[in-house]
Amino acid sequence: MNSQIDFKSLYHSQETGPVPDVKEVVKKAAGLKRKMLFKLLSVNTLLACTVGLIVLILAHHPAQNMTTKIGSVLIIMAIVSYLGVSNRAMSLLFKVVPDLNNHAYLNLLISIQSKQRFLHKTMLRIYFMLLSIGIFLAMIENALKMGLMNCILIYSGVIIWIGFNWFVMMPKSVKKQEKEFDLILSNLHRINAQIQSA
C-alpha cells in the first residue's frame, strides 16, 4: 500500500468544516487591541498617579532634610525606570509582525527574548535598589520626629521588608522568569537550528 499513498489527495481530504463567521475574527481582533491598550494605560496611570502624589506631598509639605528629598527622587526614579522598561518590553513584543520568513522571524524572537531576559533581570535589581534606598532615606525625617523607640521600631520593619524583598521575593521572581525565558529560548534555538541545518 505504501508506494501508492497519495499524500496530496489524503491531505486535501481533511474536512475543515464550515468557515466560522468572519465578524467574530474582526470583533476578537479589535477586542484584543483594546485589551492590550487598556492594560498598558492602567499600569501607566497607576504609577503616574503615585509619582504625582509624591510630588504633591512634597510641594505642600516641603521637606526639611536633604535625605527626604533624595529619597523621594529615588522612589520616583524607580517608578519611572520601571515604566520605561516595561512599556518598551511590551511594545517590542507586540510590534513584531509575523510576516517575515520563518528563519528571520525566529531570529527576531530570539533577539527580543534575550533582550527581555536581560532587561527583566537587570531592571528588577535596579528597581528594588532605588525603591529600597528611596524609602529608607525618605523616612528618616519623619521617623526622627517620633522618638528613638518608634524610630527603631519603624526602621526594623522597613529593613525586614527590604530584606524580604531583596533576599526572598526578588530571587524567586528572577528564578521563575529565567526558567520561562530559558525554556522559550531553547525551543526557539532548537527550531531555528532545524532551518540552519538544511
Binding site: P98, D99, N102, E180, N187
Partner: peptide
Amino acid sequence: WIFRIASNVCLRQLERHN
C-alpha cells in the same frame, strides 16, 4: 504572505502558550 504569518504563528506556539 498569509502562509508566512500562519507558519510563524504555529512555530511560536510554545512561546505563546507561556
